[in-house]
Amino acid sequence: MTHSITINLSHKSYLREPESTELGRKIISESIKLIDTLGFEQFTFKKLAAEIGSTEASVYRYFENKHKLLVYLVSWYWAWVDFNVSYETHNISDPREQLSKALDVVAAANINDPRTPHIDEKVLNRIVIAEASKVYLTKEVDHDNQEGFFYEYKQLCHRLAKMVQEINPEYAYPNALISTLLEAAHHQLYFAEHLPSLTELKGKQLAQTEASKFLRHLVFAAINPTMQLN
């Protein structure tokens, strides 16, 4: 039997917690599908309301605008990845093994999770790849940062950066390495599917396994160039 999990965010990009009601969960579920289909620019609350059989006013009771909704979706995704990294690594004492497992989790973040039945992580992953930069490449980024809108992403980065520091306390760029690595994980899988000449990762079936190998090579070569890589 698969047990459900609940992901809670540390900030209030929402006006009402969508996880707390059936309508809220439906707003999240259908917004993911609609943004994936239309793209964020063409997505509107009016179109979302039509999909869920409700009114625009009901959507606005949960989110002030569609930017705040995108912040929620992207933050939820990173919180879910962080939850999985924590869950899969908490019994591993060796920091190298711990980091390797964490990178496997990151590479597998385009797979739907049956523990969250109202959210399709495979689709959400595509949205994060295509639209996540719109969350922070804005004029309001500093204000949004003060509001804690990027906490979940930073928490995941810091968790992985701590593993890097445990392996090599002298390495000077753990956070820069991990934030670069997370972007690379997304882009390489995207390239494998859509722009294959930009990567050696090939095919949908092998891309995830190859992505894990590439991420391990990237991070361990940076941490310690003389370290033997598997």
Rank of each mutant, 00 (worst) to 15 (best):
P169S: 01
Q42S: 15
A102T: 07
V164F: 07
Y136C: 04
L69G: 05
L137C: 11
V81I: 09
N145I: 08
F45S: 04
F43K: 09
E166F: 11
V105Q: 00
K139M: 10
S58R: 12
H90E: 15
E64K: 13
F83M: 09
E147N: 13
T37Q: 15
L73D: 06
P95F: 00
A161R: 02
E51K: 14
P117M: 01
E152I: 00
Y153K: 05
S54Y: 04
E170F: 13
E140M: 11
H90M: 15
L124V: 08
V59K: 12
L69P: 01
W76Q: 15
Q165N: 11
F83G: 02
E97N: 11
S133W: 09
R159V: 02
L137A: 11
V135D: 01
L48M: 07
E88W: 07
A57K: 14
H143Q: 14
V85A: 01
I167Q: 03
F43A: 09
L103M: 02
R159D: 02
W78D: 08
V141K: 06
E131R: 05
V81W: 02
D94K: 04
Q98S: 13
V123F: 05
L73A: 04
W78G: 07
L70H: 02
S54G: 09
P95T: 00
P95Q: 03
R115E: 07
K47E: 14
E140P: 08
E140W: 11
Y72Q: 03
Y153D: 04
T138H: 12
I52M: 06
P117S: 03
A57D: 15
S100C: 08
V81L: 03
N65V: 06
Y171R: 07
P117Q: 00
H158Y: 14
N65P: 01
L160Y: 03
V71A: 04
A109G: 07
Y171E: 08
S54R: 08
S100V: 08
M163N: 03
E56R: 12
K47P: 10
D82E: 08
L103G: 01
K47Y: 10
Q155G: 07
T89A: 01
Y62I: 09
L48P: 08
S93P: 07
A107M: 05
F150A: 04
R159Q: 10
D144S: 03
E97P: 06
T55K: 03
Y77N: 05
A130T: 09
I92D: 01
T44E: 05
A130N: 12
R126E: 13
D94V: 05
I167F: 06
Y62G: 06
V74A: 04
N84E: 05
K134W: 05
L103T: 01
T116M: 12
D142R: 15
P174F: 00
I127C: 04
A161D: 06
F40E: 10
T89M: 00
Y136W: 15
G39P: 08
K134P: 04
E88D: 13
F83V: 01
A50P: 06
F40R: 10
F40A: 07
L99G: 01
V123C: 09
R159L: 05
Q165A: 12
E170G: 12
V71M: 02
K162R: 11
I129Y: 10
Q155T: 13
E41D: 15
D142M: 15
R159F: 06
